[in-house]
Design a protein around this nucleic acid. Structure first.
Lengths: 343, 343
DNA sequence: ATAAAAATTTTACGCGCGTAAAATTCTTGC
DNA sequence: GCAAGAATTTTACGCGCGTAAAATTTTTAT
């Protein structure tokens, strides 16, 4: 790395003694050139400071190495965590991931998809907003760009969906809770942001019915993605107007549960499964912070690794298949029950 | 929007009746063309579906509209939150922000800066890893790309720094705690990831000295960015070996405090300022979750809005000044004490 | 050793847009 | 209505690289 910064591939061709078209091939795919020339090129790259101009590269390539990762709400550590894993897989595979968050806003989601389109990405991993998504825009996008949906499914849109099996989440928590104590009531938002919430409620209803138990659904008010605040406010209202109908509460997701726990703490209601506890609380997701709540949260955990692995692999297959699958793939992974102190 | 998708600016020039160079000027800066032609262009944009090729645009422009936002650890909601605000400011000003996280790894930080360089960004907002940063790489980067550091300062590197006044954080918490009870001991990591932590410890020592009080610093073990876990483990060890030396603990940051609170809860140690409480706990940052801890956390809050506003404005000024300031600017904002239940 | 196959080099053009310079048209103030 | 000034159009070239086709070299297999 003694020489000056080289201006373009032409100059690098001159000093390295390799023709420009071969260099072009190499930068497009290092394995597409003969091993000996590859080594010559990589030797030269050590000696000379050259990186191809990324804009010129992408200008006429039909397929870039860009991959978009879009999540609905990055301030939710669940998405930060899964985005991190996806990003890592992309990097390992030689793609250029770019992370976007819709921050809960439909307009932003549309704008992200719009600008992603002009980046000519090889593929996109999209966790849509869900209820707030502009379905037509998303659908149109997926027709233009090879897209794998994750976390939140929209029927028929995208070439594949990878997520979690909501029924297995609720089945494991309901099973555990009913086996070890009073059957739970179900704590959720009246108008959830996300279709997973609806599936979880449906699962709860079905599972209670199978057990000949009366389902009790506590629908709390609130809009948006500030789930902790909504859960807290909802729980405070319940506690101030007679309390919970059961001594066991199952929350639709961990972030609501975090809010609920904070309300219980404030009201002096002791949560846990031990003696002296007034309430058992369980939940779903295994949010990165649920280990540190007071008490620590019993929850059904996403298989983060499997979801992110499989989502990326699916996208990779999709790209190699030319952007289309013969038929839409749907893969969901089961939850794993994590017993902690709250129930 | 009835017509077909136009292939390039040439075609759009043909159908709109505007010359291509004028269109080029318009897309570069809509205000640089006459009002009447601007309206004609925007009318045509309604009728025809055309967006300039972003790669071709950036290829020869010395200055793109790209802005990089780099944070050290996106899974920390503090950074997610401030990144969101920065992103929003950039979008409002017509820039194209891209968010990157080093995920706590030096190598990743270097790779991010490397690939950012080839995106020819107009400017970069960089919150460096801190101790783990490869200072030489960061410095070299800042020489090539107009960069404003935020959150974590590296002396002399970048054209400006915008952050929080660590002394004001500690001064307010120490002042409050000593005024209302026993002086605090200081709970921190032995080898903090971030220079802010060192400044906070120094402030604590100075403030205690000014009051003729004995500083008590509890240094806990642990590497990396899993602060909650580190705080929890450290607190558990302390609780299992004699307990805290004072009935008041000031944590270096909220994430450590979250871990500490979870340890206290588990050990049955009641935290708060009321009667029957064994420990008061306060902290710094006003982490987005500190409102929902049990008990809710008394903390010194970052002025998120001012920091993000001013960081963006500084970058904007820097860009308009051609990428260099006559002298490096440093701006820090004071904390605001947020009294909650933990102290 | 030799022919066939594979990889590389040479040559040449195109991508979509930035941008400079000169010619033309439009706006503005008087 | 007119001249000066401003904006636009015309013309033309360049950016850095992708890529196609033909010529050449290298490798592989017989």
């Amino acid at each position: 790395m003694v020489e000056r910064k080289l201006k373009n591939m032409e100059e690098f061709a001159a000093v390295s003694g390799i023709s420009r078209p071969t260099l072009s091939k190499y930068f497009n795919n290092p394995e597409s050139v003969r091993q000996t020339t590859r080594l010559r090129i990589e030797d030269a790259l050590q000696k000379y400071d050259f990186r191809p101009n990324i804009f010129a590269m992408n200008q006429n390539r039909k397929l870039t190495k860009n991959v978009g990762i879009v999540v609905p709400f990055l301030a939710d550590p669940f998405f930060t965590e899964i985005a991190r894993k996806l990003e890592q897989r992309c990097l390992e595979a030689g793609f250029h991931p770019t992370l976007y968050s819709a921050h809960g806003q439909q307009q932003l989601e549309n704008e992200i998809l719009d600008s992603l389109r002009s980046l000519k990405p090889a593929g996109v991993l999209l966790a849509p907003l869900g209820r707030a998504s502009d379905k037509l825009s998303v659908e149109k996008f997926c027709q233009d760009v090879p897209t794998v949906l994750f976390d939140s499914n929209i029927e028929g849109i995208g070439e594949a969906f990878v997520g979690s099996d909501n029924f297995s989440f609720v089945s494991q928590t309901v099973d555990y809770l009913t086996r070890t104590g009073e059957p739970p009531s179900f704590f959720e938002m009246r108008t959830p942001a996300n279709p997973n919430a609806n599936k979880r409620r449906a699962a709860y209803e079905q599972l209670m019915a199978e057990r000949n138990l009366e389902p009790r659904i506590l629908k709390i008010e609130g809009e948006g993605w500030a789930f902790e605040q909504i859960g807290r406010d909802g729980a405070l209202r319940i506690l101030e107007t007679g309390g919970f109908p059961t001594n066991t509460v199952l929350c639709s997701n961990d972030r609501l549960a975090i809010g609920l726990l904070s309300a219980c703490y404030e009201k002096g209601l002791r949560v846990g499964r031990g003696a002296g506890c007034a309430l058992r609380v369980a939940s779903h997701d295994d949010h990165p912070f649920s280990k540190f709540t007071c008490p620590s949260l019993t929850t059904a955990a996403h298989d983060y690794d499997s979801v992110s692995d499989h989502a990326f692999k699916t996208l990779n297959n999709l790209i190699e298949a030319g952007g289309r699958f013969a038929r839409r793939e749907e893969t969901v992974f089961s939850a794993r029950l994590v017993l902690r102190s709250s129930a």
